[in-house]
């Protein structure tokens, strides 16, 4: 437990000191609870999401970083993207199967910005309606099937 908090503090320190472009940590949310982070994300320039603002929530379990964090979009602007469901769940392999303890909040944020930026057409996943109705609250409980590596 202590090692998990220690690592989160280290990540927070690095992210506060040198935040990547378009990524801002909500310090207030973290000062309340270190295991739940709110991160503000800006759509990258030159992408379909240029000028849009999104919010991500990271929830860390006690076994972080060996266990991946729970990551989803929240707030009133959920990006319209083929891998993002309208309830904020994200279909991204590094968030479950391909997670590695060498990844961090920063690298997950950058992956998500990059995933958004390579999108060529703003649309919801084809199974959005049925997924949102039937899924668990925790996106990690979904058995994701990763099939589309293009976007």
């Amino acid at each position: 437990m202590a090692s998990m908090e220690k690592r989160l503090h280290k990540e927070l320190q690095a992210l506060t000191k040198e935040p990547p472009r378009g990524v801002h940590v909500d310090q207030e949310s973290i000062s309340r609870n270190i295991t739940e982070w709110l991160v503000h994300l800006d759509g990258a320039e030159g992408s379909l999401y240029n000028g849009e603002k999104f919010q991500l929530v990271f929830k860390f379990s006690q076994s972080y970083p060996f266990d991946s964090p729970q990551v989803m979009f929240v707030g009133n602007n959920i990006p319209v993207h083929p891998h993002v469901y309208s309830n904020g769940h994200i279909c991204l392999s590094i968030l479950t199967d391909d997670w590695s303890p060498a990844l961090s909040v920063t690298s997950v944020c950058l992956s998500i910005v990059s995933m958004l930026s390579s999108c060529t057409e703003k649309k919801r996943p084809p199974d959005n309606a049925i997924y949102v109705k039937t899924c668990s609250k925790n996106p990690k409980k979904t058995r994701w099937y990763y099939h589309d590596d293009d976007v």
Binding site: K6, H9, K10, L12, Q13, T16, Q27, I30, S31, I34
Partner: peptide, 10 residues
């Protein structure tokens, strides 16, 4: 509070 602990490490 968070940043206090973090900077205390180093």
């Amino acid at each position: 509070m968070a940043s206090d602990t973090a900077s205390g490490d180093k």
